[in-house]
């Protein structure tokens, strides 16, 4: 872009200059492709081809020894949608996203405001908020398992002091998904705090002084000045949280394995189970295609709606 730009316009009209410019441009093009090629090849192997083969596999029946896999159109999709587990899992994931996203965003904002305020031990507080982000999800799940263990766990030991009966937090459908959600919020809020912290540091302190002079209280200032100014950050965090609500399933392997009775099964965990526990590749593929469509819609939403002013070029 830099080296060859405008050389043909600026040069005096002449056959040889044009030829040089053309040669230059061709060389630029060649080098550009050569430099990008290694990454593009890997992206083709591990993103493009798998996407295409997923789509392909979703249109074929499961092959057996006696009946080879055959094209069956949308059959995998229709049987998937008629599986009651499908709706349970989709609903679980919607609830998981619907609760974790607003709560982790709200907590992240509170954390950022406190970690940005002049309070004693601010560095320690900031570190404490961020610590769960550095843990593997598996380790976080192990730690929380001791909290949820019925009777012997930390929560039941504390509630037991007040004479409350033990609760099988992870073992009963009414509480299991909520217990999983708590772990996710704990893990994510500190990560999102970072982005709010960065945004807060770009807001000039004059705004706060001005609104104080106008007689606006803390909450008016937060509602009228702070939150509107933080909107782009909130949009960014929201998109990240949305993607994470599809991606973050590691803790299920430790906490519930999707149970009891599918109460905590999320989409990606279900895909894993179909493919690697029940070896049902066609239905796993169909579910993957649906989730890819969803993520594609999120991408379009981000590029078209949210990024109108942020230019990627």
């Amino acid at each position: 872009m830099a080296a060859a730009s405008g050389s043909s316009q600026d040069a005096p009209p002449g056959f040889t200059m044009d030829q040089i410019a053309l040669y230059q441009r061709r060389r630029q093009s060649l080098y550009g492709w050569m430099l990008a090629a290694p990454a593009l090849i890997l992206l083709t192997i591990f993103a493009l081809i798998p996407t295409v083969t997923t789509l392909w596999a979703s249109f074929y029946s499961k092959g057996t020894v006696r009946r080879p896999s055959a094209f069956n159109g949308l059959d995998n999709y229709t049987s998937l949608i008629h599986d009651p587990a499908f709706w349970t899992v989709v609903w679980n994931n919607a609830l998981y996203a619907g609760i974790t996203i607003p709560f982790s965003i709200a907590i992240a904002l509170a954390m950022a405001l406190w970690a940005n305020a002049s309070i004693p031990l601010r560095g320690v507080v900031r570190g404490a908020y961020f610590t769960p982000t550095m843990l593997p999800m598996i380790a976080a799940a192990n730690i929380w398992l001791f909290f949820y263990t019925p009777g012997l766990g930390v929560i039941d030991s504390i509630t037991g002091l007040f004479g409350l009966p033990p609760v099988n937090w992870l073992g009963q459908p009414q509480t299991a998904l909520w217990s999983v959600i708590v772990v996710t919020i704990w893990k994510e809020a500190g990560f999102f705090m970072i982005f709010y912290l960065a945004a807060l540091q770009t807001i000039p302190p004059d705004f706060k002084e001005a609104s104080a002079i106008e007689g606006a209280g803390r909450f008016t200032y937060a509602r009228r000045v702070l939150i509107p100014l933080l909107m782009p950050t909130t949009a960014f965090v929201f998109i990240n949280a949305l993607i994470n609500s599809v991606k973050l399933i590691d803790h299920l392997f430790i906490l519930t394995k999707g149970g009891p009775n599918n109460a905590t099964k999320l989409i990606l965990y279900w895909i894993w189970e179909m493919a690697f526990a029940y070896f049902d590749r066609p239905h796993a593929a169909a579910m993957t295609v649906l989730i890819l469509l969803f993520l594609g819609a999120v991408a379009i939403f981000q590029f078209r709606v949210l990024d109108k002013r942020i230019h990627y070029r």
């Binding site: 081809i49 083969t53 493919a275 989730i291 993520l295």
Partner: peptide, 24 residues
């Protein structure tokens, strides 16, 4: 065009493609 394809991978996560990536 290629750059937009690359950016799409921010959304089409390797985690989602586990089944076919395993085959690959």
């Amino acid at each position: 065009f290629v750059f937009v394809l690359v950016l799409l991978q921010l959304f089409i996560l390797p985690e989602v493609l586990i089944v076919e990536n395993y085959a690959m």
